[in-house]
């Protein structure tokens, strides 16, 4: 396969920058700026995150998106030429699910690109399970997998899982 581009996306505060940071094997390009409103953290991504990781013989170029909708022009730009995308959802914050659902619909209605959902923050207590999140989002169970973005091994295993499914199913739309 050689080289592929994978987009890491999802709503604000879900752990996209953390995911790229913890899985990348090269120094990460981040565009974190001070947040002027309360979004539950002090900084926010305003353009992209970029990192690379090698899984088996494939060089993965990871492009993380901003989470906030006013940067949606970056969602489109970053999807250009992407082999697939991983949509992250905060398992500990069901209040963010409706917004996450709308954001996922933006991607699925504009792109036939393969994707899976990463249910983040699975190390916290009382979080939604990947199965429950699959049900909420109306996705097959195999399409949602738990992940702890702060843990490099966990983040890497989500990428490996994505590539296993990619090898089975090939490109194009996986989920109707």
């Amino acid at each position: 396969m050689g080289e592929v581009k994978i987009v890491i996306t999802g709503p604000v505060g879900v752990g996209k920058t953390t995911f790229v940071r913890s899985v990348s094997q090269t120094p990460v390009v981040e565009t974190e700026e001070v947040s002027s409103v309360d979004i539950g953290k002090s900084t926010t991504t305003v353009a992209l995150d970029f990192g690379t990781v090698r899984v088996k013989d494939v060089l993965i170029r990871l492009f993380g998106t901003p989470g906030q909708e006013r940067f949606s022009f970056m969602w489109e730009d970053l999807m250009e030429g992407a082999t697939g995308f991983i949509f992250l959802v905060d398992s500990s914050d069901p209040d963010s699910f409706p917004r996450a659902k709308r954001m996922l619909q933006f991607y699925t209605s504009n792109y036939d690109t393969p994707f899976i959902v990463g249910a983040t923050k699975q190390d916290l207590e009382d979080v939604w399970t990947p199965e429950e999140i699959a049900e909420y989002f109306g996705l097959p169970k195999w399409a949602v997998r738990g992940v702890v973005s702060t843990d490099g091994e966990s983040a890497r295993s989500l990428l490996v899982y994505f590539f296993e499914i990619l090898a089975q199913k090939g490109g194009g739309r996986w989920i109707d």
Partner: peptide, 21 residues
């Protein structure tokens, strides 16, 4: 102005990262 402000912030941030690198 809303979209322009977002783009300006992205450009400024990307430029900073580029020159830092």
């Amino acid at each position: 102005v809303d979209r322009q402000a977002a783009v300006i912030a992205s450009l400024a941030s990307l430029a900073s990262r580029s020159t830092e690198m």
